[in-house]
Design a binder for these strands. Structure first.
Lengths: 221, 221
DNA sequence: ACAATAATGTCAGCCACTGACAGTTGACAA
DNA sequence: TTGTCAACTGTCAGTGGCTGACATTATTGT
């Protein structure tokens, strides 16, 4: 078995591949269900493995760490975002393109996720992540790797080189910081619909420019 | 023993306090020395404890996790930054105050650190952190907690409430993202002097406003 | 000098994670 | 269909981070 298991491509394959996918998805479901219910720390790998009726060792052949299984779905969402970004018209300014790509990604998020787990479970997962220190750390690290990807994409749009011109990384840093902030606030609020997080995101992204520009005392939020 | 151990205050105390400080600092030195030499993952707590001639259990009474000991010095630096920020004149705009505080903190960083470990070791530690996934994650999490503090301070300066007005968190998010970027670039470059990281930081901070404002194609970096 | 208190060591144990080896099962050709 | 190969899985033993419980040692205030 290979660790890659790039999400949506094991469709037209033999029995072996299908079985693998079943186990893979079942592990995700079991892990998320157990973790969101009783907490990440209070859930052991043995429990998850047992729920799917495989050995602990097998779990680790599908996911290299306990954290990995938690972010398996997130990974798909991120991939879609990157695609959306690359599809934005070249005329859009960097921050504008980022904004539009992320809003698009939220829009049809439901369909993609539902094929693996109930969207509602995914939303609960998101909140669990934000309230579990170890997962917050992992989430941040993953985000920072994603930032690198995005910065490269932005640089390509603008015909720049990420290594020599710091501006792509700077916008992306600001953008990501704000994205994370939006996610956190959404998690804290009781509301956990897709619409609600989309709205929060939009609102905060549109706040970047005025907030950075200064002049806070002259204009209301 | 209490977990606090707020760095510079066990000075005028009895033998017990002094001994505690000695062990505490010795553990930091041993840990950083060993980790920077042979790598974080390839260094066990037993090795560190043995180097200081205490039991593994005692290590964990001083530092709750293996990561903690790595960030012990960073913690002091951060505290100084927060102090510097709170001392900035109210006339400065948020981003301006952040910029000046961080540059000031870099300035007299040497003195503070040298009382615990050689500055050179601290610099090597910084680079080790950036090249160790687990530590990058921990570093990011710590930073995000610091962001919360800073955002509150900014809000206070501007007479705002962090909970209702998102702007303090937005600037801080942008600011922190850029700070981290500067740190990473500095770590990748061979140069590891305090001056060099200070210069990198300054340059990137001054790039925030133009990068966010857009109009990249009209002005050179 | 003597309790009271705090720091340390020892030990047993949980859990994430890994390597090695053996058993099982699906794929594919003869 | 059958037999072989390769992939997947289970078992087991072991490492390392981390914790609770309890006994031991050291410091402090009286």
């Amino acid at each position: 078995m290979r660790a890659e298991m790039t999400p949506r491509e094991g469709l037209r394959c033999g029995l072996r591949e299908r079985k693998k996918r079943r186990t893979h998805d079942a592990l995700i479901r079991a892990a998320l269900e157990l973790c969101t219910q009783q907490g990440y720390d209070r859930t052991t790998i043995d429990e998850i493995a047992e729920a799917v009726d495989v050995s602990q060792r097998t779990f680790f052949r599908y996911f290299t760490t306990k954290e990995d299984v938690v972010f398996a779905v997130q990974e798909i969402v991120e991939a879609r975002f990157v695609d959306a970004l690359e599809a934005r018209p070249a005329a859009e300014a960097p921050l504008e393109a980022l904004r539009n790509a992320v809003l698009l990604a939220w829009d049809d998020l439901g369909q993609v996720i539902e094929s693996i787990i109930p969207v509602e479970l995914h939303m609960r997962t998101y909140q669990m992540i934000e309230s579990t220190p170890a997962l917050v750390a992992a989430h941040l690290r993953r985000s920072s790797e994603l930032e690198e990807l995005i910065a490269t994409a932005i640089a390509r749009r603008e015909g720049l080189d990420v290594e020599t011109d710091p501006r792509p990384r700077i916008v992306v840093a600001a953008f990501s910081g704000v994205m994370r902030l939006a996610g956190r606030l959404w998690g804290e609020a009781g509301e956990c619909s897709v619409e609600s997080i989309r709205a929060t995101t939009e609102q905060h992204l549109d706040g970047i420019v005025p907030a950075i520009a200064g002049e806070w005392r002259k204009s209301a939020p």
